[in-house]
Design a protein around this nucleic acid. Structure first.
Length: 663
RNA sequence: GGCGGAGUAGCUCAGUGGUUAGAGCACGCGGCUCAUACCCGCGGAGUCGUCGGUUCGAGUCCGACCUCCGCUACCA
């Protein structure tokens, strides 16, 4: 008997949405799972695709004066391009207009109609064309679509339509959920589904008037099939339903269907399994509704213009760090599954990405490889040394990390899996530190040094394997640099469970930093972490406004310690001072806050003479947004006591060096 | 309004009723010098949201309340 194929799906995406960080996330996660399963030796079918029959699509085409098919034929390939850039290893890419799919949809419709699950009725009420959604009379109060994202005018329609008897599946759905623990994940979203179903399910309209785009209802060409009915069925089209029964038998039910939380409850956890039940097909094994990404704390929306393109983001990251483009893609994949537990909402911020990149990838992993290969180069001519024995302590740490990683990845706990890998990385760094091969070499203990370095290379080999589902290119590069022979693509997870596989005597490729550190600002690394840099600091994330400033605060505002930490206040020496031409209050000062001279403008001319200020130590707010005052750029603010409008400069109680931090 | 979840270190979070509540990051100090100014070690005055209860013992169980979030319903 042939083994079940591991079948994993993403939703199929609307073709009028270019992939952004949100829907790329679903696809990246699916890719990670697919690669992991292949690594474990499973045959995998990983499917994604495009949903092209929406009325929105037809309208967008019309707006450009072309027919819908031409329109989608132009857009759909762009998805493939983006997925390729993001290293998405899909096996099948389905487009809903494909004949194999049209046939499935029509046949499913016909069968459900024959069995009575789809019946003819009349719909009367409000209809929102762009949303393709019907609303009850009570829901529409002002003639506008009740969907707050939409709010466009609705139409009163009265038409014959087909309904799917969703209401009949209430008990069967609840029973399915109850008797299949884990079929709806995460758990807290399962509860939402149960609660939704228990409130009562209404039959759902599954046809629309034919406006020249969509899959026609069998025998009734004046109607087309509702896009969700159409779209959901893609999952069984790909699996071979009606076209390849043998394949379908090996593939269905899907092992994992991933999607965002927005389409989890109503569509994937309710309508979809009910449709399958009506067709006599098993529901999928696991449906997973993950959380949403915000960007710099704000909801992703086209109108805000913060729907960042992951490909563009990778390009920017690459250019800022000097990493190869595919490594930058890997870094983004890493960030998105490492930053938060899978399932919950998360925020994508530039500073968090840079932080992860520098500390996890560059410092911990990259540098481990770099320092090791560098020593192998200088002590052993770049040849993998022969160990004198097995270093049990690091071996056991690494192998237990692998075991935990496997458990975690199997249960979709990616962050935990990566934490486990990083424990192996840390073990490597600690081992190098404790054994200090540079000291061993000085003491002439060459064999011991060989054992240490070999052990770390072995750690790197194992890390490369376990990391490869998340970071395929970086993993391949690690593999190459340590000189590991053989085709990396054909290595399996089992090779990570064994210690001592890397052959001695082979040449390494020498250290070439895979993740070059991103040096953001040379002189103020501390303030950088939390601060939002106001001026174009790279990355395609638009600068944010500061909304908290606009709220009127009647009471004395309180700031958190965190906010205080953002202030970079330092002692600075005044090097020169002169009146700003044409003003009577402003002095232009050259000050040295410890990192070189800079110019600031201060409104103290009425009380201080320029000559007397020379050499004086003042207190400077150094990271105030630069401003041009009377044509002079001021990069900082002198702090002074305000006594009835008069400024009194603050100076240190004792002489302190320029640059001393004030806190 | 109903249902559900969350509230633990500066931040993000772990934490089967059982000694002095943990991890990572950040911060501070020390060490090392192979390495991408990296890495390693050490450190912490936490009302475990509030109040009450059960218990020999509660971050953990129960009740009430406060705050935030999600889903759902907006029907007297």
């Amino acid at each position: 008997m042939e083994e079940k194929v591991f079948y994993i799906t993403t939703p199929i995406y609307y073709v009028n949405d270019v992939p952004h960080i949100g829907n790329a996330y679903t696809t990246m996660v699916a890719d990670i799972v697919a690669r992991f399963q292949r690594l474990l030796g499973r045959e995998v079918l990983f499917a994604t695709g495009t949903d092209e029959h929406a009325i929105k699509v037809a309208e967008a085409a019309e707006a450009e004066g072309i027919d819908p098919k031409t329109f989608v034929d132009r857009i759909a390939p762009k998805f493939k391009e983006v997925w390729k850039e993001l290293e998405i290893s899909y096996d099948d890419f389905i487009r809903t207009p494909e004949p194999r799919h049209v046939r499935v949809v029509q046949e499913a419709f016909r069968r459900l109609r024959d069995s009575g699950d789809i019946y003819r009725g009349v719909y009367e009420g409000w209809y929102c064309v762009p949303d393709e959604t019907f609303f009850r009379e009570s829901e529409v109060t002002d003639g506008l679509c009740p969907n707050p994202e939409c709010r466009r005018p609705v139409q009163w329609v009265q038409e014959e339509t087909y309904y799917f008897r969703l209401s009949a599946y209430q008990d069967r759905l609840l029973q399915w959920i109850e008797s299949n623990p884990g079929c709806l994940q995460p758990e807290f979203r399962k509860n939402e589904v149960v609660s939704f179903i228990k409130h009562g399910l209404q039959d759902i309209s599954v046809s629309r008037a034919n406006r020249g785009w969509g899959i026609p209802v069998p025998d009734e060409p004046d109607k087309v099939i509702y896009v969700w009915f159409d779209a959901l069925l893609n999952y069984i089209t790909v699996a071979g339903w009606l076209s390849d029964e043998e394949k379908f038998h090996r593939t269905w039910p899907a092992d994992l269907q991933l999607m965002g939380k927005d389409i989890f409850v109503r569509f994937h956890s309710t309508f979809w399994p009910a449709m399958l039940m009506g067709l006599g097909i098993q529901p999928p094994r696991v449906l997973f509704g993950h959380g949403f990404w915000s960007v710099e704390g704000e909801k992703i929306s086209k109108s805000r213009g913060n729907a960042i393109s992951p490909a563009k983001l990778a390009e920017d990251l690459a250019s800022r760090s000097g990493a190869k483009r595919e490594v930058a893609v890997d870094a983004i994949r890493y960030f998105m599954v490492r930053e938060v537990p899978f399932g919950v909402d998360a925020d994508f911020s530039r500073s968090a990405l840079v932080h992860r990149f520098n500390s996890d990838l560059a410092n911990d992993l990259g540098n481990l490889l770099n320092r090791t290969l560098s020593m192998v180069g200088s002590y052993f001519d770049g040849v993998v040394p022969k160990p004198a024995g097995v270093a049990e302590e690091i071996k056991s740490e690494v192998l237990s990390a692998v075991a935990e990683c496997e458990t975690a990845l199997s249960s979709l706990e990616f962050a935990r899996g990566l934490e486990a890998i990083w424990r192996a990385v840390s073990a490597g760094n600690r081992f190098v530190d404790e054994r200090a091969p540079w000291r061993l070499m000085k003491e002439g203990k060459r064999e011991e040094a060989a054992t240490v370095l070999y052990s770390v290379l072995e750690t790197a080999r194992i890390v490369a394997i376990t990391l490869s589902p998340v970071m395929p290119s970086a993993a391949r590069e690690i593999w190459r640099q340590i000189g590991s022979p053989g085709d990396f693509e054909s290595v399996g997870w089992a090779a990570a469970l064994e210690w001592g596989v890397l052959p001695s005597g082979i040449m390494t490729a020498g250290p070439q930093p895979i993740f070059p550190r991103i040096e953001e600002r040379k002189r103020e690394p501390k303030a950088e972490a939390g601060a939002e840099s106001p001026v174009g600091a790279g990355f395609a994330i638009p600068p944010q406004q500061a909304p908290e400033e606009t709220k009127p605060e009647a009471e004395e505002p309180v700031i958190s310690y965190d906010e205080f930490k953002k202030l970079d206040i330092r002692v600075a020496e005044i090097k020169s001072a002169e009146q700003v031409a044409g003003t009577d209050k402003l002095l232009q000062l050259t000050v040295d806050p410890g990192d070189g001279e800079r110019t600031i403008v201060a409104g103290i001319a009425q009380w201080y003479e320029p000559e007397k200020l020379l050499g004086k130590k003042i207190v400077l707010l150094a990271n105030l947004q630069p401003a041009k005052i009377r044509g002079v750029e001021s990069r900082g603010m002198l702090l002074a006591a305000d006594v009835d409008g008069r400024a009194i400069i603050l100076t240190p109680d004792e002489d302190v060096p320029s640059g001393a931090k004030v806190r």
